[in-house]
Design a binder for these strands. Structure first.
Length: 422
RNA sequence: GUGGGUGUGGCCUAAGGGUUAAGGCACCUGGUUGUGGCCCAGGAGAUUGUGGGUUCGAGUCCCACCACUCACCCCA
């Protein structure tokens, strides 16, 4: 017999981990809906071409990280490596431009990227995603940023930092890239091999190189902020004004470029300590050209993706407590065939009454059943024996206080219900 | 794709090249007739990641593969 293991980079989220997931999911959804976002679920796989066109063929995500396969009909499909392309596709496909604009959408679910796993990185991971489609108002960028800010703050995070930059638009960015390339040509002998390669394939990326020798070059490099067109500069200035107005701290980081082709104007990340080399707990920005690239009407958009695994890592690193789910209200123990039948019936009755009940399985001694009741953290053990049955009662033991009383079977639902709400 | 570290029951850990791989946690059953938590006793559970090699003899040494892990690239 083969012994199976989970595929590399995937994880089993065990019951004891679920409280963390529930906390993050419910809180994120609550914040999104409070801000007027509506949920959209898009397929876990899409046409490969959607991602190739949307994200950009020269990006790492498309070049080497996609789970691509051919289905039996011969179509090339890809497990989604992000939400944005699929959400924008859905916006176009369902003519959502006829709805009141902008449309605010959130999604939550698994994302797939073929990559070498490490701390805070998986091949199947989960994102909480927000998109605002149909407005260029910097206030939309702000809302996106505020929402993730509130998410982290509300979860109890400390030591967060907002990294903010503008990468310009198709009008101003090419000019900046030329300036940057010209500057780097003067220092071509001093930079690392990777940067020489980046200069050809994806020039902006030289700015976030971590090689020692490149640091002085980056520090003195021309900043894109000085080369934005008027529209981009205004947009950026307004966004910063709003952030200042609300007293939200952020770091202007002209080295922040991000790896997806579709970003225009605003880009940002939130960094947190305690999750290894991966500092970013979320990343996002504006993508005003994406809808058109995907064959839809020109539609500005801005969004963010937050990595849930990384959020949970930070929660654990920072000691954020999550409520552990309570044990059952009642644990039903029984002795003898007669009592067992009554136990089965009683468990059903109590559950139908809305009470949480664990019924002991098997034919075992009372000691064993009481041990189990204790381990399952039941509040009350309902003990059914021959004696009790004959008199139409159950012995009910308060597992916390260690006190025991007899309760008539007909009155048990009421008795327990009264105490359930305490 | 590249580099480092690590692989012993479900989990944690022990075993200086030499008998039936040891212990703790967790699990199960008992400790006088039907009562949990503490304690005590017992039980089940491992072909030491896989496959080769060296050796009279390998959990221990060597090689390969696999997995996990950390880091690079990049990203959530």
């Amino acid at each position: 017999m083969p012994r199976f293991q989970r595929p590399t980079g995937t994880q089993d989220i065990l019951p004891e981990e679920q409280p963390y997931w529930n906390r993050v999911r419910t809180f994120a959804i609550q914040l999104a809906e409070r801000a007027g976002f509506e949920r959209i679920d898009v397929p876990i796989f899409e046409a490969t071409e959607l991602f190739a066109r949307g994200i950009g063929t020269a990006t790492d995500v498309v070049e080497k990280e996609m789970y691509t396969f051919e289905d039996k009909g011969g179509d090339s499909l890809t497990l989604r490596p992000e939400f944005t392309a699929g959400v924008v596709r859905a916006y176009i496909e369902h003519g959502m431009h006829v709805r009141p604009q902008p449309v605010k959408l959130y999604s939550i679910g698994p994302i797939f990227r073929y990559d070498r796993p490490q701390a805070g990185r998986y091949r199947q991971f989960h994102q909480f995603n927000l998109e605002i489609l149909g407005t260029q108002d910097p206030a939309a960028d702000l809302e996106i940023m505020l929402l993730v800010w509130d998410l982290y703050e509300g979860l109890g995070f400390r030591g967060l930092s907002f990294q903010l930059n503008s990468t310009g638009c198709p009008r101003c960015r090419p000019g900046y890239v030329e300036v940057l390339k010209a500057y780097y040509q003067q220092h071509i002998a001093e930079i690392c091999d990777d940067c020489r390669r980046r200069l050809q394939t994806n020039p902006l990326r030289v700015l976030d190189c971590k090689a020692e020798q490149c640091q002085p070059i980056i520090a003195a490099a021309p900043a894109i902020g000085d080369h934005l067109c008027e529209e981009c500069a205004d947009h950026f200035a307004t966004l910063r004004e709003y952030l200042d107005l609300l007293g939200k701290p952020y770091t202007l980081n002209h080295r922040l470029v991000r790896g997806l082709d579709y970003y225009t104007k605003t880009v940002f990340e939130v960094w947190a300590a305690g999750i290894g080399a991966q500092a970013a707990v979320c990343g996002g920005g504006r993508y005003d050209g994406l809808a058109e690239i995907l064959g839809g009407p020109p539609t500005p958009g801005v969004g963010v993706a937050a990595g849930i695994e990384r959020i949970i890592l930070v929660m654990k690193a920072q000691g954020v407590e999550v409520p552990t789910p309570p044990g059952p209200l009642a644990f039903i123990a029984h002795l003898g065939p007669e009592a067992r039948r009554e136990g089965v019936r009683l468990a059903d009755e109590l559950r139908r009454a809305g009470l949480s009940v664990w019924l002991a399985f098997g034919e075992r001694g009372l000691k064993s059943q009481m041990r189990e009741a204790n381990k399952r953290r039941a509040r009350y053990a309902v003990i059914l024996g021959e004696d009790e049955l004959a008199r139409g009662v159950a012995a009910v033991r308060d597992m916390g206080a260690g006190e025991q009383v007899e309760v008539p079977l007909e009155g048990l639902v009421t008795w327990l219900r009264e105490r359930a709400s305490l």
